[in-house]
């Protein structure tokens, strides 16, 4: 298993997959993954890496699909002050920001 998510994403893109990249850009409190952590997602449903302990990957994947369709990057906020966090269950109580962009 490679921890080099960017290279995995680049390989998927080179193989003709549509790829989106999600990157943790800021964290507060007990977020499980540090800033710089990446999650690569393809339109076909492949995933590599992580931006949390698994709590928000599903929500991020939805936004990634959107970014692949319209090409627009998005900055997502997850945290206990955010209603969305209750929906996706950020059980750790941390807060984080995730930048989602289309690759290529």
């Amino acid at each position: 298993m490679s921890e080099d998510i960017l290279t995995t994403a680049a390989e998927w893109a080179a193989a003709g997959e549509q790829v989106a990249l999600a990157t943790v850009v800021e964290t507060w409190g007990s977020s499980p993954r540090p800033a710089g952590s990446m999650l690569a997602i393809t339109a076909s449903g492949r995933m590599a890496g992580s931006v949390s302990g698994g709590c928000i990957e599903g929500a991020v994947a939805d936004v990634a699909m959107q970014a692949m369709r319209d090409g627009k990057p998005q900055l997502l906020d997850f945290g206990i002050s955010d209603e969305r966090a209750w929906e996706v269950g950020l059980a750790c109580g941390g807060k984080l920001k995730v930048f989602v962009e289309k690759l290529g």
């Binding site: 290279t7 962009e101 290529g104």
Partner: peptide
């Protein structure tokens, strides 16, 4: 990220 920037970063 544009394909051009990705390839520069990887290079």
């Amino acid at each position: 990220m544009t394909p051009e920037l990705l390839s520069r970063l990887q290079a």
